[in-house]
Simulated assay, not measured.
Amino acid sequence: MRVIDTAAGLTPEALGEVLGVPVTAVRREKIGSGQIGACYRLRLDCADGARRRLVAKLAAEDEGARSFLWPVYRAEVAFYRDLAATVKVRTPRCHYGAISADHTSFVLLLDDLHPAVQGDQLAGCAPDRAAAAVANLAGLHGPRWCDPALLDVPWLKPVGAEDAARLGEVFGPAVGTFVERFAGRLDDRDVRTLRETADAIAAWVVGRPDVFGLVHGDYRLDNLLFGDDGRVTAVDWQTIGLGHPLRDLAYFLGTSLPPDVRAARERDLVGVYHAELERHGVTGYDLDACFEDYRFAALQGPLITVLGCAYGTPTERGDRMFLAMAARSCAAIRALGTLDLV
Protein backbone atom coordinates (compact mmCIF):
# COMPACT_ATOMS: atom_id res chain seq x y z
CA MET A 1 0.00 0.00 0.00
CA ARG A 2 1.20 3.47 -0.82
CA VAL A 3 2.81 5.42 2.03
CA ILE A 4 2.72 9.19 1.74
CA ASP A 5 5.97 10.16 3.41
CA THR A 6 5.80 13.96 3.72
CA ALA A 7 3.37 16.84 3.50
CA ALA A 8 4.62 17.51 -0.04
CA GLY A 9 3.25 14.10 -0.96
CA LEU A 10 -0.32 15.08 -0.05
CA THR A 11 -1.11 15.90 -3.67
CA PRO A 12 -4.44 15.58 -5.48
CA GLU A 13 -3.03 12.68 -7.46
CA ALA A 14 -1.75 10.75 -4.43
CA LEU A 15 -4.88 11.35 -2.37
CA GLY A 16 -7.13 10.41 -5.25
CA GLU A 17 -5.22 7.17 -5.70
CA VAL A 18 -5.40 6.04 -2.08
CA LEU A 19 -9.00 7.19 -1.52
CA GLY A 20 -10.29 5.85 -4.82
CA VAL A 21 -11.97 9.19 -5.60
CA PRO A 22 -10.59 11.66 -8.17
CA VAL A 23 -9.32 14.74 -6.31
CA THR A 24 -8.86 18.02 -8.17
CA ALA A 25 -7.45 20.27 -5.42
CA VAL A 26 -6.08 20.04 -1.89
CA ARG A 27 -5.62 22.73 0.73
CA ARG A 28 -3.70 21.79 3.84
CA GLU A 29 -3.15 23.41 7.23
CA LYS A 30 -0.67 22.12 9.80
CA ILE A 31 -2.20 21.39 13.21
CA GLY A 32 -0.78 20.18 16.52
CA SER A 33 2.68 20.53 18.00
CA GLY A 34 4.39 17.92 15.83
CA GLN A 35 6.40 16.34 18.63
CA ILE A 36 5.48 12.74 17.75
CA GLY A 37 4.35 13.16 14.15
CA ALA A 38 3.01 15.71 11.69
CA CYS A 39 -0.74 16.40 11.39
CA TYR A 40 -2.54 18.34 8.67
CA ARG A 41 -6.14 19.36 8.17
CA LEU A 42 -7.02 18.74 4.53
CA ARG A 43 -9.80 20.25 2.43
CA LEU A 44 -10.31 18.24 -0.72
CA ASP A 45 -12.20 19.21 -3.88
CA CYS A 46 -13.33 16.10 -5.72
CA ALA A 47 -14.04 15.66 -9.42
CA ASP A 48 -17.73 15.02 -8.74
CA GLY A 49 -18.06 18.43 -7.09
CA ALA A 50 -18.03 17.08 -3.54
CA ARG A 51 -15.82 18.60 -0.85
CA ARG A 52 -14.28 16.51 1.92
CA ARG A 53 -12.48 17.38 5.15
CA LEU A 54 -9.87 14.96 6.48
CA VAL A 55 -6.97 14.94 8.90
CA ALA A 56 -3.70 13.43 7.68
CA LYS A 57 -1.23 12.00 10.21
CA LEU A 58 2.33 11.43 9.04
CA ALA A 59 5.64 10.52 10.67
CA ALA A 60 7.76 13.21 12.30
CA GLU A 61 9.66 15.49 9.96
CA ASP A 62 12.90 14.75 11.86
CA GLU A 63 14.41 11.57 10.39
CA GLY A 64 16.24 10.82 13.62
CA ALA A 65 13.01 10.97 15.60
CA ARG A 66 11.40 8.50 13.23
CA SER A 67 13.94 5.80 14.05
CA PHE A 68 13.07 6.19 17.74
CA LEU A 69 9.30 6.57 17.38
CA TRP A 70 8.53 3.71 15.00
CA PRO A 71 6.83 1.53 17.68
CA VAL A 72 4.14 4.16 18.24
CA TYR A 73 3.61 4.55 14.50
CA ARG A 74 3.16 0.80 14.14
CA ALA A 75 0.74 0.72 17.08
CA GLU A 76 -1.56 3.45 15.78
CA VAL A 77 -1.77 2.15 12.21
CA ALA A 78 -2.33 -1.38 13.51
CA PHE A 79 -5.05 -0.21 15.89
CA TYR A 80 -7.09 1.24 13.05
CA ARG A 81 -6.31 -1.75 10.82
CA ASP A 82 -6.78 -4.64 13.27
CA LEU A 83 -8.76 -3.50 16.31
CA ALA A 84 -10.96 -0.45 15.79
CA ALA A 85 -13.74 -2.44 14.15
CA THR A 86 -13.78 -4.98 17.01
CA VAL A 87 -14.53 -2.46 19.79
CA LYS A 88 -17.20 0.16 20.44
CA VAL A 89 -15.10 3.14 21.52
CA ARG A 90 -15.75 6.18 19.32
CA THR A 91 -12.74 7.06 17.17
CA PRO A 92 -12.36 9.05 13.96
CA ARG A 93 -13.22 6.97 10.92
CA CYS A 94 -10.04 5.87 9.15
CA HIS A 95 -10.31 6.19 5.37
CA TYR A 96 -6.80 4.98 4.62
CA GLY A 97 -3.77 3.75 6.52
CA ALA A 98 -0.38 2.46 5.43
CA ILE A 99 3.06 2.04 6.97
CA SER A 100 6.49 1.28 5.54
CA ALA A 101 8.22 -2.07 6.04
CA ASP A 102 10.59 -0.58 8.62
CA HIS A 103 7.69 1.28 10.35
CA THR A 104 9.45 4.66 10.17
CA SER A 105 7.00 6.21 7.69
CA PHE A 106 3.22 6.04 7.78
CA VAL A 107 0.04 7.80 6.71
CA LEU A 108 -3.43 7.84 8.23
CA LEU A 109 -6.34 9.69 6.64
CA LEU A 110 -9.01 10.25 9.29
CA ASP A 111 -12.32 12.08 9.53
CA ASP A 112 -11.96 15.71 10.55
CA LEU A 113 -14.32 15.98 13.53
CA HIS A 114 -14.65 19.77 13.39
CA PRO A 115 -16.45 21.49 15.17
CA ALA A 116 -15.85 19.06 18.07
CA VAL A 117 -13.70 20.69 20.75
CA GLN A 118 -10.53 19.21 22.24
CA GLY A 119 -10.49 18.75 26.00
CA ASP A 120 -8.15 20.86 28.10
CA GLN A 121 -5.91 18.93 30.47
CA LEU A 122 -4.98 22.03 32.43
CA ALA A 123 -8.55 23.22 32.98
CA GLY A 124 -9.89 19.77 33.80
CA CYS A 125 -13.51 18.92 33.13
CA ALA A 126 -16.93 18.89 34.72
CA PRO A 127 -18.38 15.61 36.01
CA ASP A 128 -20.93 15.37 33.18
CA ARG A 129 -18.16 15.43 30.59
CA ALA A 130 -16.19 12.95 32.65
CA ALA A 131 -19.21 10.63 32.66
CA ALA A 132 -19.43 10.76 28.86
CA ALA A 133 -15.71 10.07 28.58
CA VAL A 134 -15.73 7.04 30.89
CA ALA A 135 -18.78 5.62 29.11
CA ASN A 136 -16.87 5.88 25.83
CA LEU A 137 -13.83 4.26 27.46
CA ALA A 138 -15.90 1.22 28.41
CA GLY A 139 -16.53 0.80 24.69
CA LEU A 140 -12.81 0.10 24.27
CA HIS A 141 -12.54 -2.31 27.17
CA GLY A 142 -15.83 -4.17 27.28
CA PRO A 143 -15.97 -5.89 23.87
CA ARG A 144 -12.49 -7.47 24.24
CA TRP A 145 -12.49 -7.92 28.04
CA CYS A 146 -10.11 -10.76 28.98
CA ASP A 147 -10.22 -11.94 25.35
CA PRO A 148 -7.49 -14.60 24.93
CA ALA A 149 -7.34 -13.85 21.19
CA LEU A 150 -5.63 -10.55 22.07
CA LEU A 151 -2.62 -12.55 23.27
CA ASP A 152 -2.16 -13.84 19.70
CA VAL A 153 -2.05 -10.39 18.06
CA PRO A 154 1.62 -10.25 17.01
CA TRP A 155 2.19 -6.55 17.64
CA LEU A 156 0.50 -6.58 21.07
CA LYS A 157 2.68 -7.83 23.88
CA PRO A 158 1.73 -8.09 27.56
CA VAL A 159 4.28 -6.76 30.03
CA GLY A 160 6.40 -9.54 31.49
CA ALA A 161 8.80 -9.73 34.41
CA GLU A 162 11.79 -8.53 32.39
CA ASP A 163 9.81 -5.59 30.98
CA ALA A 164 8.67 -4.69 34.50
CA ALA A 165 12.22 -4.74 35.80
CA ARG A 166 13.38 -2.47 32.97
CA LEU A 167 10.51 -0.10 33.65
CA GLY A 168 11.55 0.12 37.28
CA GLU A 169 15.13 0.90 36.23
CA VAL A 170 13.96 3.68 33.92
CA PHE A 171 11.17 5.14 36.01
CA GLY A 172 13.16 5.70 39.20
CA PRO A 173 15.71 8.04 37.58
CA ALA A 174 12.91 9.71 35.59
CA VAL A 175 11.15 10.56 38.86
CA GLY A 176 14.40 11.98 40.19
CA THR A 177 14.76 14.18 37.13
CA PHE A 178 11.12 15.27 37.36
CA VAL A 179 11.51 16.24 41.02
CA GLU A 180 14.71 18.19 40.30
CA ARG A 181 13.23 19.96 37.30
CA PHE A 182 10.21 21.17 39.27
CA ALA A 183 11.94 21.80 42.57
CA GLY A 184 9.97 24.37 44.53
CA ARG A 185 6.86 23.82 42.40
CA LEU A 186 5.97 20.34 43.70
CA ASP A 187 4.28 19.83 47.05
CA ASP A 188 6.45 17.80 49.47
CA ARG A 189 3.67 15.22 49.78
CA ASP A 190 3.66 14.75 46.03
CA VAL A 191 7.43 14.30 45.97
CA ARG A 192 7.11 11.51 48.55
CA THR A 193 4.27 9.90 46.60
CA LEU A 194 6.26 10.01 43.37
CA ARG A 195 9.27 8.38 45.00
CA GLU A 196 7.10 5.70 46.61
CA THR A 197 5.46 5.07 43.24
CA ALA A 198 8.89 4.58 41.68
CA ASP A 199 9.69 1.93 44.29
CA ALA A 200 6.44 0.09 43.59
CA ILE A 201 6.10 0.44 39.82
CA ALA A 202 7.79 -2.81 38.73
CA ALA A 203 5.53 -4.93 40.94
CA TRP A 204 2.46 -2.85 40.08
CA VAL A 205 2.74 -3.08 36.31
CA VAL A 206 2.43 -6.89 36.38
CA GLY A 207 -0.09 -6.96 39.22
CA ARG A 208 -3.60 -8.42 39.01
CA PRO A 209 -2.97 -10.28 35.72
CA ASP A 210 -6.29 -12.16 35.77
CA VAL A 211 -8.02 -9.08 34.36
CA PHE A 212 -6.57 -7.84 31.07
CA GLY A 213 -7.57 -6.16 27.86
CA LEU A 214 -6.85 -3.28 25.55
CA VAL A 215 -5.41 -0.17 27.21
CA HIS A 216 -5.34 3.17 25.41
CA GLY A 217 -2.43 4.18 27.64
CA ASP A 218 -2.94 7.96 27.45
CA TYR A 219 -6.71 8.42 27.77
CA ARG A 220 -6.85 12.02 28.96
CA LEU A 221 -8.59 15.26 28.09
CA ASP A 222 -6.10 16.48 25.48
CA ASN A 223 -6.72 13.24 23.55
CA LEU A 224 -10.52 13.55 23.61
CA LEU A 225 -12.85 15.54 21.37
CA PHE A 226 -16.23 16.69 22.70
CA GLY A 227 -19.09 17.23 20.28
CA ASP A 228 -22.06 19.56 20.62
CA ASP A 229 -24.23 16.46 21.09
CA GLY A 230 -22.22 15.42 24.17
CA ARG A 231 -20.51 12.54 22.39
CA VAL A 232 -16.85 11.92 23.08
CA THR A 233 -14.31 10.68 20.53
CA ALA A 234 -10.87 9.35 21.45
CA VAL A 235 -7.83 10.08 19.29
CA ASP A 236 -4.07 9.43 19.41
CA TRP A 237 -3.79 5.64 19.58
CA GLN A 238 0.01 5.46 19.58
CA THR A 239 0.12 4.02 23.10
CA ILE A 240 -2.43 1.21 22.63
CA GLY A 241 -1.32 -1.96 24.42
CA LEU A 242 -2.34 -4.84 26.65
CA GLY A 243 -2.74 -4.48 30.39
CA HIS A 244 -5.25 -3.99 33.16
CA PRO A 245 -8.09 -1.96 31.60
CA LEU A 246 -8.77 -0.01 34.80
CA ARG A 247 -5.45 1.76 34.29
CA ASP A 248 -7.16 3.93 31.66
CA LEU A 249 -10.06 4.75 33.98
CA ALA A 250 -7.89 5.61 36.97
CA TYR A 251 -5.58 7.70 34.79
CA PHE A 252 -8.44 9.65 33.25
CA LEU A 253 -10.26 10.43 36.50
CA GLY A 254 -7.07 10.97 38.47
CA THR A 255 -5.62 13.52 36.05
CA SER A 256 -8.78 15.20 34.72
CA LEU A 257 -10.71 16.13 37.86
CA PRO A 258 -9.61 18.40 40.71
CA PRO A 259 -9.08 16.25 43.81
CA ASP A 260 -12.16 17.49 45.66
CA VAL A 261 -14.40 16.87 42.64
CA ARG A 262 -12.87 13.45 42.03
CA ALA A 263 -13.35 12.43 45.65
CA ALA A 264 -16.98 13.51 45.61
CA ARG A 265 -17.90 11.94 42.27
CA GLU A 266 -15.54 9.03 41.55
CA ARG A 267 -17.81 6.28 42.90
CA ASP A 268 -20.62 7.48 40.67
CA LEU A 269 -18.28 7.73 37.69
CA VAL A 270 -16.83 4.27 38.26
CA GLY A 271 -20.45 3.14 38.42
CA VAL A 272 -21.15 4.68 35.00
CA TYR A 273 -18.13 2.89 33.57
CA HIS A 274 -19.10 -0.43 35.18
CA ALA A 275 -22.68 -0.23 33.88
CA GLU A 276 -21.31 0.33 30.38
CA LEU A 277 -18.97 -2.66 30.74
CA GLU A 278 -21.99 -4.83 31.51
CA ARG A 279 -23.83 -3.38 28.53
CA HIS A 280 -20.90 -4.49 26.38
CA GLY A 281 -21.17 -8.04 27.70
CA VAL A 282 -18.78 -8.19 30.66
CA THR A 283 -20.04 -10.63 33.31
CA GLY A 284 -18.71 -11.97 36.61
CA TYR A 285 -17.15 -8.63 37.52
CA ASP A 286 -19.16 -6.75 40.12
CA LEU A 287 -18.98 -3.06 40.99
CA ASP A 288 -17.03 -3.64 44.21
CA ALA A 289 -14.32 -5.53 42.31
CA CYS A 290 -14.27 -2.80 39.70
CA PHE A 291 -13.75 -0.10 42.31
CA GLU A 292 -10.96 -2.06 44.01
CA ASP A 293 -9.20 -2.43 40.66
CA TYR A 294 -9.71 1.29 40.07
CA ARG A 295 -7.95 1.99 43.37
CA PHE A 296 -5.09 -0.34 42.44
CA ALA A 297 -4.70 1.15 38.95
CA ALA A 298 -4.05 4.75 40.05
CA LEU A 299 -0.28 4.53 39.59
CA GLN A 300 -0.90 4.97 35.86
CA GLY A 301 -1.18 8.70 36.54
CA PRO A 302 2.37 9.42 37.69
CA LEU A 303 3.78 6.75 35.38
CA ILE A 304 2.55 8.41 32.19
CA THR A 305 2.98 11.94 33.51
CA VAL A 306 6.63 11.49 34.47
CA LEU A 307 7.60 9.55 31.34
CA GLY A 308 5.71 11.96 29.11
CA CYS A 309 7.60 14.84 30.67
CA ALA A 310 10.92 13.03 30.34
CA TYR A 311 10.55 12.30 26.62
CA GLY A 312 8.52 15.28 25.42
CA THR A 313 9.84 18.60 24.17
CA PRO A 314 9.62 21.15 27.04
CA THR A 315 7.03 23.91 26.65
CA GLU A 316 5.53 26.38 29.10
CA ARG A 317 2.06 24.87 28.79
CA GLY A 318 3.48 21.37 28.92
CA ASP A 319 5.24 22.08 32.21
CA ARG A 320 2.07 23.44 33.79
CA MET A 321 0.12 20.46 32.48
CA PHE A 322 2.56 17.90 33.86
CA LEU A 323 2.57 19.63 37.25
CA ALA A 324 -1.23 19.62 37.37
CA MET A 325 -1.40 15.96 36.33
CA ALA A 326 1.21 14.97 38.91
CA ALA A 327 -0.52 16.83 41.73
CA ARG A 328 -3.96 15.46 40.88
CA SER A 329 -2.83 11.86 40.42
CA CYS A 330 -0.67 11.86 43.56
CA ALA A 331 -3.62 13.15 45.58
CA ALA A 332 -5.74 10.31 44.16
CA ILE A 333 -3.11 7.70 45.09
CA ARG A 334 -3.04 8.90 48.68
CA ALA A 335 -6.81 9.18 49.00
CA LEU A 336 -7.40 5.75 47.46
CA GLY A 337 -4.62 4.01 49.42
CA THR A 338 -3.22 2.63 46.18
CA LEU A 339 0.31 1.95 47.41
CA ASP A 340 -1.08 -0.26 50.18
CA LEU A 341 -2.56 -2.53 47.48
CA VAL A 342 0.66 -3.19 45.54
Results as ranks from 00 to 15, higher is better:
Met1Leu: 12
Thr6Ile: 10
Gly9Leu: 13
Glu13Ala: 15
Gly20Pro: 06
Thr24Lys: 08
Glu29Leu: 03
Lys30Arg: 01
Ile31Met: 13
Arg43Thr: 13
Leu44Pro: 14
Ala60Asn: 14
Glu61Tyr: 09
Asp62Gln: 03
Ser67Cys: 05
Tyr80Gly: 09
Val87Lys: 15
Pro92Phe: 01
Ala98Val: 03
His103Leu: 10
His114Ser: 15
Gln118Ser: 05
Leu122Asp: 14
Leu122Gln: 04
Ala131Thr: 04
Ala131Leu: 04
Ala132Asn: 06
Cys146Ala: 02
Pro148Tyr: 09
Asp152Arg: 14
Val153Asn: 11
Leu156Tyr: 13
Leu156Ile: 10
Gly160Pro: 08
Glu162Pro: 01
Asp163Cys: 10
Ala165Gly: 13
Glu169Cys: 10
Pro173Ala: 07
Ala174Gly: 06
Phe182Val: 06
Phe182Ala: 03
Asp188Lys: 05
Ala198Pro: 01
Pro209Arg: 02
Asp210Leu: 01
Val211Leu: 07
Gly217Tyr: 08
Asn223Trp: 08
Gly230Ser: 02
Gly230Ile: 03
Thr233Glu: 05
Gly243Leu: 09
His244Pro: 02
Gly254Tyr: 03
Thr255Met: 11
Pro259Arg: 05
Asp260Ala: 15
Arg262Glu: 09
Arg265Leu: 04
Arg267Ile: 08
Leu269Thr: 09
Leu277Arg: 02
Gly281Glu: 08
Tyr285Gly: 10
Asp286Tyr: 03
Ala289Cys: 12
Cys290Asp: 14
Tyr294Asn: 11
Gln300Ala: 11
Pro302Asp: 14
Thr305Gly: 05
Gly308Ala: 03
Gly312Met: 09
Thr315Leu: 06
Thr315Cys: 08
Glu316Leu: 07
Arg317Asp: 15
Phe322Ser: 02
Ala324Leu: 02
Cys330Arg: 04
Leu341Asp: 01
